[in-house]
Nucleic acid binder design. Structure first.
Lengths: 232, 232
DNA sequence: GCTCGTCAAGAGCAGTGCTCTCTTTTTGTG
DNA sequence: CACAAAAAGAGAGCACTGCTCTTGACGAGC
């Protein structure tokens, strides 16, 4: 009986996988707003109402895609980091930056779903926050390990962070242990700077202005690395 | 005849203004995806088809809102900058940062329309690129004037920008004349860093992590000011 | 006064998310 | 093996969307 129940479960899981695959493909061509359950159903030769057996609403399908997306970019970042020498902290940071940018360029609509404007009327459920931090955890580990190795020497240029921020710094330190409030703040600058750069490129703010985007990106990420105090 | 034609034109212009006002109000509550011409028409006691006399398509209405939005944030940035002493370059930068952030928090959906993911299926027409750079021009002027006043002393920490980037730097220098390639690159870092920070706050990446957002924002913008070489 | 352009109004098309009912298929159990 | 229960598919239907087309009224210029 366990096997038979698994049989049904298996075809169900298979269908769910197929639905998300088709939805992802449609997402890539039409964008998040053009994602329609009816169209997905049509693509699989299913009647529109049947799809509600698998995803009770459009938002649930969206949630599945978001979780998959976070896991995909998280995995991309993890493998990029893993390919570097452990003590090449700047190289690891740069690899993470390029992994984020490359994944974003390869999956623009999925990236927009994760880091762009929230889909109107859609509220991200709790299930997304776990996968959502996979990439950030890799980043935090790099900083922490650089700190622990004594290779993190942030140049004295930023003002001291206001003491008010130490409680927030504690929260950040859960993914980036062992660093000072100052490094936490710089860490947020670099991390948001990375995504700010990717957003500008992807969302069109660089159109007709910046042509050598990869080069500028890499150079700017090195600037942020210097701000972080990673070795040159 | 000129007066009468003007009379007609006047009521037409008045209606267009009313439509965009209502659309903006709906945008604020429903978001870009929920912007519906029929709903706007209903709000003004108009039959849905009549609205197409004024905006031939939903995208045209969106374009109008985008242009208005760029002008609004541009104006906010301009007045914030104008309120500062001309030679307080760091203060002007900080004022610009806060103006962007405050405007974004006050008009989240409009901001998302401008700096968030592009609306699927919507292609921004040429008319938007002028107003789109109002805020950037203020920013560029601050950097240029600081440079001209000899108050821009970027700390030696970034690597030299690759020569490949000098053509892109020329393009950027059209809004930020008189600065080196190095300053151009740092300028892009700071500008994208500003919007990266605002995006993270607005799009939810700081949820459950950062509580003192204004304080962290200001501190981080000061870090970026230091990276730019603005006086402390 | 008549014509012509502008506008409001309505019907209609194709599409959407989602719900309901009805039927078929599959499954675990007496 | 037969049968009730659970799950899935199919279809109709509701209220909504953007957009088009036609019809009829109104006002300005010849």
């Amino acid at each position: 009986m366990n096997a038979s129940r698994t049989a049904r479960e298996r075809v169900r899981a298979e269908l769910i996988r197929e639905i998300t695959d088709i939805a992802r493909r449609r997402l890539a061509t039409e964008g998040a707003g053009g994602l329609s359950l009816r169209a997905v159903a049509r693509d699989m030769g299913m009647v529109s109402s049947a799809i509600y057996r698998y995803f009770p609403s459009r938002d649930d399908l969206l949630t599945a895609l978001i979780i998959d997306g976070y896991n995909a970019i998280g995995e991309a970042v993890e493998t990029a980091d893993a390919a570097c020498a452990r003590d090449d902290f700047t190289g690891r940071w740069l690899a993470v930056c390029h992994a984020v940018r490359t994944w974003a360029l390869d999956h623009p609509h999925e990236y927009a779903l994760l880091y762009g404007s929230p889909v109107p009327g859609y509220q991200a459920p709790e299930d997304t926050i776990g996968p959502a931090s996979r990439d950030t955890m890799v980043y935090g580990r790099i900083i922490s390990e650089a700190q622990a190795a004594g290779r993190l020497n942030p140049p004295a240029m930023c003002p001291a962070p206001p003491g008010l921020l130490s409680s927030d710094a504690d929260a950040v330190r859960s993914v980036m242990p062992g660093v000072s409030d100052d490094v936490v703040a710089r860490g947020v600058v670099a991390w948001t700077g990375l995504f700010g750069m990717v957003n500008f490129e992807l969302f069109g703010q660089f159109n007709n202005v910046i042509r050598h985007r990869r080069e500028l990106f890499e150079h700017n990420m090195l600037c942020l690395a210097a701000l972080l105090g990673l070795p040159a």
